[in-house]
């Protein structure tokens, strides 16, 4: 058990900016910081528990059918988090829409299960998944904060105005799909330029 398993996923091997995994939700739900927080929470729940379970069952799973087994584990967890969100935060679940059940096929989660949890000890797997979740969450918040600020002119999280109106006529394009690609591309370019990742 090493602490690097946790820290590597936050910046150096960031899911979105370094591994380019989980780009689909990053593009789709980062219109608002609120959605990004919800998605980050859901992914953290699924990623940590799936890494834990996959790491525990890795000895019993025949190698030929390992991917279907991982998917069953992940899909079950996604169903749980979907029901929880629908019950306790229906508006957030509605905002996330199809991208909530689609966490099942998020390459970040299957990627960590296949590449890490299925061949490492349980403790390492949990640390890895926690680090990856933090990194993924930070990336989502970063992208969504930029998009909400430029595209809506202000940042509102669960009814609280975090950043008051700074742009009187915001750029609507930033809330559309091109805005997501532009934001991720520019952030990636800046990070590569300064060798952050």
């Amino acid at each position: 058990m090493r602490i690097q398993e946790f820290t590597k996923g936050i910046i150096k091997r960031n899911a979105v900016f370094s591994l380019a995994l989980g780009l689909c939700p990053t593009l789709a739900v980062t219109i608002m910081v609120e959605n990004a927080l919800g998605m980050a929470f859901a992914v953290t729940f699924v990623l940590v528990l799936s890494n834990l379970i996959v790491s525990v069952i890795k000895g019993f799973v025949p190698p030929d059918v390992r991917i279907p087994c991982f998917i069953v584990v992940i899909a079950s967890l996604v169903t749980v988090i979907e029901f929880i969100m629908r019950a306790y935060s229906p508006t957030l679940a509605e905002h996330l829409g199809i991208f909530l059940p689609l966490i099942t096929v998020n390459c970040l989660i299957l990627g960590r299960a296949e590449a890490f949890a299925s061949r490492r000890p349980v403790a390492d797997s949990i640390l890895d998944s926690l680090g990856m979740s933090v990194g993924f969450g930070l990336a989502l918040i970063m992208v969504s904060a930029i998009r909400e600020l430029l595209g809506s002119g202000k940042i509102v999280i669960f009814g609280h105005e975090i950043v008051p109106t700074v742009l009187s006529s915001p750029a609507v394009a930033m809330t559309l799909a091109p805005g997501a690609f532009l934001t991720i591309g520019i952030l990636l370019a800046i990070m590569r330029r300064f060798r952050v990742i």
């Binding site: 006529s169 915001p170 750029a171 609507v172 394009a173 930033m174 559309l176 091109p178």
Partner: peptide
């Protein structure tokens, strides 16, 4: 096109 998508009214 960026301007047209961002500020359709203006």
């Amino acid at each position: 096109v960026f301007l047209a998508l961002s500020w359709p009214a203006l």
